[in-house]
């Protein structure tokens, strides 16, 4: 299966919240008012410019996800559909994924005694069965479209090229964090819509791997160095002891000769 994705065209969104409702239905979540993403809201429609512009928030499903690399027990997995999934049976609850995510997506069940991470699953089971995501299916305005990520990039490009005046020339998600499955188009600069613009362009896991990959080399080098120092100081102590004994023996000899004299 080719990796799938979502293309969200902010210029087409009419703010009907159908995506939120469909998402809640598909994931058995409560249908209630939200103020942001939460453990019970996998997607959230934020409004800007006095309620004329609407921006969906949801997991970006990075190509090389930071959460997958950050989780010490490997509770996150990038699936063949492109979805990034979380497995609570592995999770120990350190919340490093929440800290590490460049888009601040993972949410926590703070009220629970066995808390889990919650976030968009890009409708993994539906997509694996050949269907599209619930949000894309529900969108009446074609603002959220589901498809192969490659096709969606081409589609986004052609929309920008067809009417250059109605879009800014930027596909958000094309290269953010090394590329994400969810892509955005907008008429308004993304920084004015709350998108983080300082997300590195290269895959973020590289930032820690650069250091982590040096650990074995460091351990060996430090071990050799310390054993070497130990060898030298041990030898020195031995020599000092030997010399002291000699001196003592020498003194004894001289004392004996004194006695003899």
């Amino acid at each position: 299966m080719k990796p799938k994705g979502l293309l969200i065209d902010i210029t087409r969104c009419v703010g009907c919240h159908a995506c939120e409702q469909a998402c809640a239905e598909a994931n058995n979540l409560p249908q209630d008012e939200a103020t942001d993403l939460s453990a019970t809201h996998y997607t959230f429609l934020r409004s800007f410019n006095d309620g004329t512009v609407f921006v969906r928030r949801l997991c970006m499903h990075c190509n090389e996800p930071t959460c997958v690399s950050a989780c010490l027990v490997g509770a996150f997995r990038k699936m063949e559909t492109g979805a990034v999934l979380y497995d609570e049976s592995k999770c120990i609850g350190c919340r490093y994924c929440m800290q590490a995510c460049p888009f601040e997506v993972p949410r926590y069940e703070w009220g629970s005694l066995a808390p889990k991470i919650q976030k968009c699953r890009m409708c993994y089971e539906r997509v694996a069965a050949g269907r599209q995501t619930a949000c894309a299916e529900a969108c009446p305005a074609g603002a959220t479209v589901f498809g192969d990520r490659d096709d969606l990039i081409r589609e986004a490009r052609s929309r920008i090229d067809a009417t250059p005046g109605s879009y800014i020339d930027y596909i958000y998600g094309l290269s953010e964090a090394g590329g994400t499955s969810v892509l955005f188009l907008s008429a308004i600069p993304f920084e004015k819509l709350g998108f983080p613009m300082n997300v590195p362009r290269e895959p973020i896991p590289d930032l820690s791997w650069r250091v982590l990959s040096q650990v074995p080399k460091y351990a060996v080098a430090a071990g050799v160095l310390l054993f070497g120092i130990n060898w030298i100081t041990a030898r020195r102590a031995e020599v000092a002891r030997f010399e002291a004994e000699e001196r003592r023996a020498g003194k004894q000899v001289s004392r004996e000769s004194e006695v003899r004299a």
Partner: peptide
Amino acid sequence: DLGRPWAIWHAIIMWNPHSVMFE
């Protein structure tokens, strides 16, 4: 601090060497 402290032993058998937290 851990949300699921009873699972702390997972760190012993579930490895992800790409995680700093693993180190």
